[in-house]
Design a protein around this nucleic acid. Structure first.
Lengths: 341, 341
DNA sequence: TTGAAAGCGTTACCAA
DNA sequence: TTGGTAACGCTTTCAA
């Protein structure tokens, strides 16, 4: 069933039917209802390909996933985020195009997306320091939203980010309130935007309590299990070890857990640990595992928000906010003070 | 620059130019080269939207990701698989459409994909026992390839799967060769196709060595960390504990590791463990963590193969195999016999 | 408030 | 080997 056929059934012109279905104001309310009823009855589905050609819009949004050359893992960040974004896209009639490209070839991918007109907009993942993609997309004139922030960008750009600073500030405060005074920070490499912000939050909370950060219990390393383990061993076996840990990544947390247990201690009882991770949020703690985690479904919500922002941008809706700082959800499992209580 | 403009520059008809560019045999070789040169010179990119409308093809493949209602995690299986598939799609000019749908709504999603004609074919993930999607897709006439196998399907259907039976047989044999005689099996729930096959492989290897499987050290549970931990604790504290473990999932393996370490033992030294996982293969072991894993980049390769098969199906290429059993890659890290050493 | 007709940029059929 | 013309199914003027 296509538009012409439907129009014939209704004894109307395709024009009118199209207008009725697309909510144009000039059509008679009675007509509109007749049309809507018929469309339902005959299960009319407009042909997307025709719409795309006629309007010149792609009705699709691209997520370019850089992959492979350096790391062998596909970063699964995207799972939750994309699930959230996907909801919004389908509600708005947009398709979600996934473009997997070798990460040394990203520029070409964006150029092609533009020249072939396959998408109306793009979401940029894992921004780097002075991310070249931002000026590139600006130049190409492709609407885009960045998931995260790219410190040092010359021009302003639209983004959705989790409030990493505040999340770490709150987590630190929580530990301070429990009575901890030696709180270690296991951070990601601090050339990444989020890592810098996380450290700032941690330091701010300490400062508010009159505590000077001790570089001996602050680390910024690759977010791997190996690093988490090594750092845990080192910190726990040093004199005056921390009583609590604030960890930037779930994977690092696994390594830390191993280190803690190797010493015959237990997480959540002998040592308090808060793990914040807005990337690998698919990994849940077993119910009996006393890890405290911050941020969970926030990533999904961030996906929704980014998608909504992008669609607004595509439609040229002015006025909507172009920068969105989301508060991390804080999930507390089991907690204890520094002195076994 | 569109076809008509390019044709005008060349003093040819759009028809001829189109034919030249699309490799039709009837065009003069000299003309073809002139056209190709001009296309390059003017950086002509055919308009995908027009092609799609004119041909009726979508030039896109759909991956429907069921999500949310029951589990709260998006299964990250798809990451590696999709990366592999994506390579093949883009090489063949197909877009990859990701459709995230609530898992109680999958049927509607497929029907809509069909009626709106957004894709030419579909990949089905995580098949269930008598998966309703298979007859549905058959009925709808959408070409599809299943990643995995759906036991009990009435009709034949195209699939790509990892040889789970053989992988577990080989892993068990490896442990037997090291001298282990009490090898525990930590399997996923055995209503899933792959779990059944894995158990069969395990039992076959034991049988070949004249060992009767001991139900006391065989478990089939949810593939979570909690279950892995609980089973590990139970098995290790029972009389006559296993000296080796064969585990079906990386996440379960994490729980088992915890159980082992809680008892002051070390994986790979005191207890041998092989973890097989063709789903959560993004999780790597730290270099110093003596877990042995089977199957890694196989998932990616499976994605490639499935994509190639689907494209063949879409193009109606006959003769190509419709069923593909892939051997799992076996990665051995560090190993030891049952008697320390 | 409705309709006719001209695109949108290709491909595909039929002639030449 | 090439070209003219009609699709493909919608949206978008312009006219009534």
């Amino acid at each position: 069933m296509n538009l012409k056929e439907l129009a014939r059934k209704l004894d109307l012109s395709p024009t009118t039917v199209s207008r009725a279905l697309n909510g144009y104001p000039e059509v008679n309310e009675a007509t509109r209802e007749r049309v809507a009823a018929a469309a339902r009855k005959y299960n009319y589905q407009p042909n997307t390909r025709a719409i795309r050609l006629a309007t010149g819009r792609a009705m699709a949004v691209g997520h370019v996933i850089p992959v492979a050359t350096r790391h062998e893992i596909v970063n699964p960040v995207f799972a939750d985020f994309i699930a959230g974004a996907g909801e919004v896209y389908s509600r708005n009639g947009y398709d979600l195009l996934l473009s997997v490209v070798p990460d040394d070839d990203e520029e070409r991918a964006y150029r092609e997306l533009k020249s072939r007109g396959t998408v109306d907009g793009v979401i940029v993942h894992s921004p780097r320091m002075q991310d070249e993609r931002i000026p590139l997309l600006h130049d190409l004139g492709i609407p885009f939203v960045v998931h995260g922030r790219a410190t040092d960008s010359a021009r302003p750009y639209p983004w959705v980010d989790v409030n990493n600073r505040r999340a770490f500030q709150r987590a630190t405060e929580f530990l301070l309130d429990l009575g901890h005074r030696r709180i270690a920070l296991l951070n990601g490499l601090e050339f990444m935007d989020f890592a810098i912000r996380r450290r700032a939050g941690y330091e701010a909370a300490l400062a508010a309590h009159g505590i000077t950060p001790d570089p001996a219990i602050m680390a910024a390393e690759e977010m791997t299990e190996t690093c988490g383990h090594r750092l845990g061993v080192a910190l726990l076996s040093a004199p005056n070890p921390p009583t609590a840990f604030l960890v930037s990544s779930m994977i690092m947390g696994l390594g830390l857990r191993r280190a803690i247990e190797e010493r015959g201690l237990r997480m959540g009882r002998d040592v308090s640990v808060i793990i914040h991770d807005d990337e690998l949020s698919y990994l849940r703690n077993g119910d009996d595992v006393p890890i405290f985690t911050a941020t969970r479904s926030s990533v999904r919500e961030a996906g929704r928000q980014a998608a909504a922002m992008l669609i607004g941008l595509i439609r040229g809706e002015a006025g909507a906010p172009r920068e969105l700082l989301m508060e991390a959800e804080l999930i507390i499992g089991q907690s204890t003070g520094p002195h076994r209580g």
